[in-house]
């Protein structure tokens, strides 16, 4: 996929990274290439190892579930992939672009265009309705009005919420809110959607619907999905499971 500058924010001067690299961004079959990632948390003066020399690859179009008990490093790994946590050691490359070589502006650019996020607690903007919650982030991509509207409509229809587009988050059920969050990620047309415990706040039936929706997006829209979860239902549905224990990969199947 060749990116074009019309997707940069209107009026903003492209950075050197945008101008020289992202314009020539090519989707690689290896979406994520992670090598010897380690990450430590500090609780006061105590160092807690969240990840220890974790290495793996995620291919474009994969549906990967990262599982493991609480404290195993699932969310940390997902946050590192999404550039939400700073990389401490090791290397992560997205479509061949190494994270450690990026400046903050470039990271923002990648987050805006290449990554979609789904959070356990939905994280919608309370004062905006479903449609606006999606449009806000599409708008950030500098798209024209028609393209913006079309993407929002497609995304809301994909999650079957078009009729509820004027509802605000507090007027929707948990499942509906999570579907808005999925639509928000989807509308950005990202290379990958990173979902952190997307079913944890939902009942079993709604959780299943959400995972089925993600699977549908994965197969129909060819969006790579990386889900962190300890929900057995999610793990059942995931074609690939990466199990973590004590910050290390226990299994990859």
């Amino acid at each position: 996929m060749l990116l074009d500058l019309s997707r940069s924010k209107p009026g903003s001067k492209p950075s050197k990274f945008e101008a020289e690299t992202l314009l020539e961004w090519k989707d690689s079959p290896i979406l994520f290439d992670c090598r010897e990632i380690s990450f430590d948390y500090f609780l006061g003066n105590t160092k807690m190892a969240a990840l220890e020399k974790v290495s793996f690859q995620i291919r474009s179009g994969d549906f990967v579930a990262i599982s493991g008990p609480s404290g195993s490093g699932k969310s940390t790994l997902l946050n590192l992939l999404g550039m939400i946590e700073p990389l401490q050691s090791g290397e992560i490359a997205l479509d061949g672009h190494s994270y450690s070589s990026l400046r903050e502006r470039d990271r923002n650019w990648i987050r805006r265009f290449k990554l979609g996020f789904i959070f356990q607690s939905f994280n919608l903007i309370d004062v905006l309705n479903a449609e606006e919650n999606i449009e806000y982030f599409v708008n950030s991509q500098g798209l024209g009005m028609a393209e913006r509207k079309s993407r929002v409509e497609d995304a809301l229809k994909a999650v079957q919420l078009w009729e509820h587009r004027f509802k605000k988050p507090h007027q929707m059920s948990g499942g509906q809110r999570q579907r808005v969050a999925i639509a928000r990620a989807l509308a950005k047309k990202p290379r990958v959607i990173l979902a952190d415990e997307p079913t944890a706040s939902l009942d079993q039936t709604t959780g299943r619907e959400i995972i089925e929706l993600l699977k549908k997006l994965n197969t129909q829209e060819n969006v790579t999905i990386v889900v962190s979860s300890h929900d057995p239902m999610v793990l059942e549905q995931a074609p690939r499971r990466l199990r973590l224990k004590d910050g290390k990969i226990q299994s990859d199947s």
Partner: peptide
Amino acid sequence: TLRANGES
């Protein structure tokens, strides 16, 4: 959330 989605 805004920052995670690319807002500086």
